[in-house]
């Protein structure tokens, strides 16, 4: 564990806490893409198949449980909670994410570390996570003004993978034979997708103005 990876995990956890706060405090999920939340639930379930077979550390197991439980809880809230579900932007959250799932799985069948069920699903989860934010970014562009908590949620979610890129660079330089090409390249693509969001987020922070993404 290095400082970059810890910062990445804490930033990821923070993004989830901010989203839970937004939904709990405002009893609303307006501006949140349910499709992105569902993709993340798939990402975590596909990635943590080793949850009960490979014990790495208490921290590792604890965080995996947190990520799986929180993503499923958020999807449940957005689908079934009597108050929260009413504020879902159904007509704006129309990204056909089936293609993202299909393409990621097809790529995982071709490019993986080892051709085992666990490794193929791990690669699948890496590719899917790289594009999972797309429905959310599309929704932000369509829904015009973005409330602060939603903006912070997306910002921390994008920032966590940037910390992981620093972590991979650090490990590549300090650990012999360390390579994570699949996660590394996907992580760069994932973080690059946030580029324009980060730009408008920085502008809104500098001008102390409302975050607005051009349609």
């Amino acid at each position: 564990m290095n400082i970059f990876r810890l910062a990445g995990d804490m930033t990821h956890l923070l993004s989830i806490l901010v989203l839970l706060l937004k939904i709990y405090a405002t009893k609303s999920c307006s501006g949140i893409s349910r499709k992105t939340q569902e993709l993340y639930a798939i990402v975590f379930m596909a990635r943590y198949l080793d949850l009960f077979t490979d014990f790495i550390s208490v921290y590792n197991t604890f965080m995996k449980l947190i990520f799986i439980a929180s993503s499923l809880a958020i999807v449940w809230c957005m689908r079934f909670h009597p108050v929260v579900r009413r504020s879902y932007d159904r007509e704006l959250d129309t990204f056909r994410y089936f293609f993202l799932v299909g393409a990621s799985f097809a790529l995982a069948l071709v490019w993986h570390d080892k051709f085992t069920l666990q490794e193929v699903f791990w690669a699948f989860s890496i590719y899917l996570e790289a594009v999972a934010i797309l429905p959310q970014l599309v929704l932000l562009q369509r829904s015009g003004n973005v409330d602060n908590l939603t903006g912070q949620y997306v910002f921390f979610l994008g920032a966590y993978r940037a910390f992981y890129i620093l972590n991979w660079i650090y490990r590549y330089m300090t650990e012999p034979r360390f390579t994570r090409w699949i996660a590394g390249i996907s992580g760069v693509v994932q973080t690059a997708l946030y580029a324009d969001f980060f730009y408008y987020y920085f502008i809104s922070w500098k001008n102390n103005s409302k975050l607005k993404l051009p349609a």
């Binding site: 490979d54 990520f67 490794e119 972590n167």
Partner: peptide, 10 residues
Amino acid sequence: DEQESGKDEL
């Protein structure tokens, strides 16, 4: 080897 291909990250 396990560590090498092992997935120790989240």
